[in-house]
């Protein structure tokens, strides 16, 4: 790991200033995506700007028809939040299934969303629930935010402050995890909300989170596991590794979709 300058700003403005101050400056939230690649010398930021001391990023608020989760909320915060559990239990359950206890106690929603790892769980939740990513300067709908593996709509000097989730009538997440890393091999969030039924898949595609229109249409007509059990997704463009080849991943997407629908009750 190379040497770097560590910044601990206490306001969003200071954080933005520090972020703009160095050519190779990076934000750090929980560090669970950034630090591993830094240890392997795959990333070598000159400056790390911590958001830990910036006030107001750790709140979870009930907005009636939505729940807003502060960017610095850890996965454990979301999993344990009374508001989230009451209003969008599928989101709390999803957060409770990320990684292991250590990861959940340090990793944050803002870090996960900004990183957009194709095997992360949050992108599926954001897209299926129709979330809005709130930054220091604007609001970006999830449909526009995630732009392929490790790519998002964020500008280099833009800071996520919160993610706002509309409350869905029913939703559930089913994940098949990589046996070694526990990242999603196929994670499917199904939500039946104001924008209709949405099926969002993470972990499977090299392009990151995607929706399955055919499943959404089928569920719109008949919201049942059976409705999606026979709908195969193409293995073209699916990720392939030692734990799961493209065919197997594509198959698992259908199985997980069915199970998510059934879990919606």
């Amino acid at each position: 790991m190379n040497d770097f300058t560590y910044h601990a700003p206490t306001s969003l403005d200071d954080a933005l200033a520090a972020l703009r101050g160095g050519d190779g400056a990076k934000l750090i939230a929980g560090g669970h995506s950034l630090l591993p690649v830094m240890k392997l010398n795959l990333a070598a930021p000159t400056d790390l700007v911590s958001l830990a001391g910036v006030p107001g990023l750790g709140d979870i608020t009930d907005g009636g028809d939505s729940v807003t989760v502060g960017a610095m909320c850890t996965h454990a915060d979301v999993a344990g939040s009374d508001v989230v559990r009451a209003r969008i239990p599928a989101l709390a359950a999803m957060a409770d299934g990320i990684g292991d206890a250590q990861v959940r106690n340090a990793g944050t929603i803002g870090g996960s969303v900004a990183h957009n790892d194709p095997a992360a769980d949050y992108p599926a939740a954001c897209v299926a629930l129709g979330a809005t990513v709130v930054t220091d300067r604007r609001e970006i709908h999830a449909d526009d935010f995630f732009q392929g593996m490790f790519a998002t709509a964020l500008a280099d000097d833009e800071v996520i402050t919160a993610v706002r989730f509309p409350v869905a009538a029913r939703a559930a997440y089913a994940k098949f995890a990589n046996p070694a890393s526990k990242y999603a091999v196929a994670g499917v969030m199904v939500a039946d909300g104001a924008a209709g039924v949405r099926v969002a898949v993470t972990g499977a595609s090299g392009d990151g989170v995607f929706r399955v229109a055919e499943m959404e249409a089928a569920l719109g007509a008949s919201f049942s596991g059976e409705a999606v059990a026979g709908i195969a997704v193409s293995s073209d463009g699916m990720l392939s590794d030692t734990a799961a080849g493209a065919d197997y991943r594509a198959h698992l997407v259908t199985v997980m979709a069915k199970r998510a629908v059934e879990a919606c009750g």
Binding site: N178, Y183, T242
Partner: peptide, 23 residues
């Protein structure tokens, strides 16, 4: 059920960390 050390044909270790090697 879980553990398998795999090499690529060129001798690179495919299961070189806990991301890929299942304990």
């Amino acid at each position: 059920l879980l553990e398998e050390c795999l090499y690529q044909e060129d001798g690179q270790l495919q299961t070189g960390s806990y991301l890929d090697y299942t304990m």
